[in-house]
Design a protein around this nucleic acid. Structure first.
Lengths: 106, 106
DNA sequence: TGAATATATGAACAATTGCTCATATATGGA
DNA sequence: TCCATATATGAGCAATTGTTCATATATTCA
């Protein structure tokens, strides 16, 4: 077996947890509802009912997905009056989305 | 409703198919087996049995995943002797993986 | 405080997914 | 041509996922 290749194997095997983490991250972007939500938040912070209305997704479905996004630290919240405003946790999220967009429209 | 926000809504609604495509792309990166395979191929072209051995994944499982990767045009193949050598279809794939890796190790 | 409203949550269900096991296919080389 | 080997494929199954429906929770504001 080629030496450099066996080094790769080692790297991948040893970092098995890293691959879980990264694939879990991609998994979150791998649902169109979540992707749309994230993309919407890329342009403007929004409350749950706004997101729901804009994307024509049930309020419940949006809430469920937002919980996943929040648990994964991709979005954060703040209260304004009666509403909970969701926003992206950081700008790198947009980078990831753009990265995928670019690949699709090659 | 704010005008700029309604513009976003239009953009997302009209490009519903785009979001399906992009989320389908991320979905592929969203499985650790596939991610490992892609990552391995980032470093070196490999045949099926090599991938299988390196990642300690069944030959069958690898084959199944490779078919998905090939159908999605993420990998391409060439025959060398008895083996089918798999390689990345393009270098942008590495960019996407790196993008995810970076986010995880923030 | 009480009603109205916004958001969250839980159970249930259908659909999808990734694996295994068995086996088919196809190619190279003797 | 025939065998050995490499890869692909199909069925079946358990696990996971995303949605809906019903309802709980919580906060604002009159």
């Amino acid at each position: 077996m080629d030496n450099s290749i066996s080094r790769i194997q080692g790297a991948i095997t040893r970092n098995s947890e890293l691959f879980e983490e990264v694939s879990d991250l991609f998994k979150i972007f791998g649902d169109s509802s979540r992707l749309k939500i994230l993309c919407a938040l890329t342009q403007s912070d929004m409350c749950v009912s706004e997101i729901s209305e804009f994307l024509s997704i049930t309020q419940s479905a949006v809430s469920h997905q937002l919980r996943i996004l929040k648990t994964s630290n991709l979005v954060k919240t703040r209260r304004v009056g009666k509403n909970i405003i969701y926003s992206l946790a950081d700008q790198h999220i947009k980078t990831i989305i753009d990265c995928g967009m670019e690949h699709v429209s090659e």
